[in-house]
């Protein structure tokens, strides 16, 4: 799989789209004023309440039936989140992220910049990420150790963006009895923590491999020394 065809220029528009994506899901502009237009939770809105009885899900249910009705309340959030991601992708938000990432992959993850496409793909689809990574390994663009580090990055929090926005995002629609939002963190904070921890996990693998390689090297050396002595 060659990625040079995909190496098209990143425009200012792409960067603006990426910036918008970050602000939109960060919760920074959550408000009922006009700037709420730039906030996911604000635009996602709320279900109406039936008199004093609360939302249409009611209370006191349980089991499969309650699970279904609850799951049903998640559908609009999933649809809206996926629609916004599609629009942001259309404006090149992920292209901009790929370009910016290609400069930092070597220091941050110890893998070459050309892995950026696989990294971006892996945030959306585990299958796309892993198959592109396999391609990089087979073509010799990354070493076995680099592929282990990179695989670790993909394995913890696989397809992070799609998975989180298709289920985790709904946690942020839950409300307390008084109607105030229950979850005290923003979507953006959770995404940032996940992304940072994915990098931390990959680096544990990276330095673990380096350490064990060094140890193995020592053993070989000492054996050689013993043989010589």
């Amino acid at each position: 799989m060659s990625n040079d065809a995909k190496e098209n220029k990143v425009t200012l528009g792409n960067l603006i789209a990426l910036g918008f994506a970050i602000v939109f899901f960060s919760g920074l502009l959550k408000s009922n004023e006009w700037w709420g237009l730039f906030d996911f939770t604000t635009l996602n809105g709320a279900f109406g309440r039936i008199g004093d009885l609360g939302s249409f899900r009611g209370s006191g249910g349980g089991g499969a039936r309650d699970g279904f009705i609850f799951a049903f309340t998640l559908v609009p959030t999933v649809m809206f989140a996926m629609a916004m991601i599609e629009v942001l992708e259309h404006f090149g938000a992920l292209d901009a992220a790929r370009k910016l990432l290609s400069y930092v992959l070597r220091p941050v993850l110890g893998v070459p910049g050309e892995s950026a496409l696989a990294l971006i793909a892996s945030l959306q689809s585990t299958d796309a990420g892993s198959s592109i990574t396999r391609g990089l390994l087979d073509e010799g663009k990354i070493t076995k150790d680099e592929s282990d580090t990179f695989t670790m990055f993909q394995f913890s929090g696989g397809a992070m963006l799609v998975n989180f926005f298709s289920s985790g995002a709904v946690l942020f629609t839950l409300t307390n009895a008084d109607g105030s939002p229950a979850v005290t963190a923003s979507i953006g904070l959770c995404v940032a923590v996940m992304f940072i921890m994915k990098i931390v996990g990959a680096n544990l693998m990276r330095f673990g491999l380096r350490f064990s390689a060094k140890k193995k090297g020592d053993v070989v050396e000492s054996k050689a020394a013993a043989a010589r002595g």
């Binding site: 279904f68 049903f72 998640l74 559908v75 999933v78 649809m79 996926m82 629609a83 298709s166």
Partner: peptide, 17 residues
């Protein structure tokens, strides 16, 4: 937007629910 929302619907029906 609509194409994305449709993807969301498919995820919701085939996975979330």
């Amino acid at each position: 937007f609509v194409a994305g929302a449709r993807k969301g619907w498919n995820i919701a029906v085939s996975s979330t629910i």
